[in-house]
Amino acid sequence: MSRLELRHMRKAFGGLEVLADISLRVDAGEFVSILGPSGAGKSTLFQLLTGAEHGEGEMFFDGAPLDDHGRHFAFMPQRDALMPWRRILDNTTLGLEVQGVRRKAARTRVAPLFAEFGLTGFERHFPAQLSGGMRQRAALLRTVVQERDMLLLDEPFGALDALTRAAMQRWLEQMWRHHRWTALLITHDVREAVFLSDRIYVLSARPARVVREIKVPLPRPRHPSGAEARQASLLEAEILDILLNLQPSKGHDHD
């Protein structure tokens, strides 16, 4: 039985069809990516999952129809959404506070995780005093400490510079190996999807449908060198081909 399963999800805003037909599943302890062109409606999919929007189709969690959205998912939005007025420690406890955990208890639950997330010594800093990578790690800490069944990561590294992004991807892969979170990642970065995922769903441009499901057979830990790197590159090239062939043909006029 899958942890999460979507069957033929559709969503339109007014007359604009955003999701045409999305069926996918995520198993427990699996890292799955949704890869698609910008503006394909990937974030809309997360809004359906978190209950911010309602669409047609069926959603199941552990085999039961998904109704109480908040209970299952910990959501990490694009950019870090850290509150500038809260110190890092108090930003990371936010989800627990909303759950009704007392501030002091929440702090003692979060504090031991700071070392693992590379944030030791920055508990009392404000977000503006941290680098982009550190802010993103704080945002992930805030997400995982909620101890939900599943992580929803919406292009978490999209706003970072290329070098920091590569470092964060390696760090996340390592963290994932230790914790085996069930995770669904939205991205338009092919390399990121291949590097992090067990499986990848490739979406078409809007209105989005699943055009391909790809298993990533690379062993973990993922090494960015040697024979595996060549295997990864081939897979990336294949996926990139699929994505580029989806683009409307008028784009070629400018080449």
């Binding site: 694009q78 959404a81 909303v98």
Partner: peptide
């Protein structure tokens, strides 16, 4: 996004 995140947290 802060609003979206809080609502996803159940606020």
């Amino acid at each position: 996004e802060i609003g979206q995140m809080l609502r996803a947290m159940g606020a």
